[in-house]
Design a protein around this nucleic acid. Structure first.
Lengths: 186, 186
DNA sequence: AAGCGAGTGTAGCAGTCGCTACATATCAGA
DNA sequence: TCTGATATGTAGCGACTGCTACACTCGCTT
């Protein structure tokens, strides 16, 4: 007869990916325990059992999301260095514009808003993700760049500004700004 | 005898400033009708009566906030033109860092997050505010600037990137980026 | 075999949510 | 004076919130 469907033990580590998928789809602010539990195949009862509190769950979840983001950055890092600063910008903006990244982008702005309000865990997760991105940028700077460290931070600021303006429907403004700054190829 | 405290008629226009004060203090996402009503000296019942729906109330409120922001920008616009692009940046960042602006900044990131999620009214309010800021920036560009239109958009992108990085505790990154871009005086 | 702690389902608590039904009160125009 | 629209308070609905109490089944050690 069919072997009993031996359920693997439920742990934080097995729950966090499922919870992440749910918040990517439905947002972080409006996430409540019962829908989260359903997405993870459990009950709110068990989420509280494993995390203790909804707040602790969110903090853990943000930390996990930051790690997922770091892994995604690492995976995208492979390619050879860019030849110019404009190429760096083009590469990263293409990455951010990819449809697969859009749920994450929507989530990102919620994290920024939470960080601005000092909600627990938000600042740390946001800082970790920005730190990861900065490291990636530094590694991508052209070899002959006169100031790789400062240049990476300069590009980072421009990129984040571009992403923000795009999020509110001012992507043309950002593109013209990049153009005026000599950061668009062609 | 004392004249009866003739209460002025309650209208949307009389409610919106009070509602604005409440969301500036307590945030937009977690705003629910009953606290909003108490802040405005009414009942949830009357908010629904005047606005029809909570969603309509939020849309109206966002439009009003955008107009308030535009008025604040106009009021701050007075001064003479800046001498350099760095001066423009310094002036506007000082404006954004002012303590009086911090509640608005916290609200701003919530508006961005809402716009990224296509919540009704958020995109429009955010676009209006960014358009107003862009107009102000264009008027502030140095007289001898070789490309005032493009330069304003360039500065706008850098400024918004700086504000975002500051919101998540990476203000040092942004400042070094501004420095590397030649946008910090001294 | 006895007992123990981890894990889990069911039921439910007290509270808040957006919103509505109903009863008035006020005031203008007919 | 009647009529109708505007305005306001009270009570409450059903859904949902985070969280807990209780009972139960396991796999394990003693």
């Amino acid at each position: 007869m069919a072997d009993a469907p031996k359920k693997p033990p439920m742990t934080k580590d097995s729950l966090l990916p499922l919870l992440t998928a749910h918040v990517l789809a439905h947002g972080l602010g409006g996430a409540s325990l019962r829908p989260l539990a359903k997405a993870a195949g459990t009950s709110d009862r068990m989420l509280i059992y494993h995390f203790g509190t909804k707040e602790a769950l969110i903090v853990d979840l943000l930390g996990y999301i930051a790690k997922v983001y770091a892994a995604a950055i690492d995976a995208a890092m492979g390619g050879e260095r860019a030849a110019t600063r404009a190429d760096v910008v083009a590469r990263i903006l293409a990455h951010g514009d990819a449809p697969a990244m859009q749920p994450f982008m929507r989530l990102w702005w919620e994290i920024v808003a939470g960080a601005a309000r000092d909600l627990p865990g938000y600042q740390m997760a946001a800082q970790a993700m920005m730190g990861e991105l900065l490291g990636w940028l530094e590694g991508q700077m052209p070899e002959n760049d006169p100031d790789p460290a400062g240049g990476a931070r300069y590009l980072m600021t421009m990129i984040e500004g571009t992403l923000m303006l795009s999020a509110v429907g001012h992507s043309d403004t950002a593109l013209q700004g990049l153009l005026a700054g000599g950061l668009l190829p062609s």
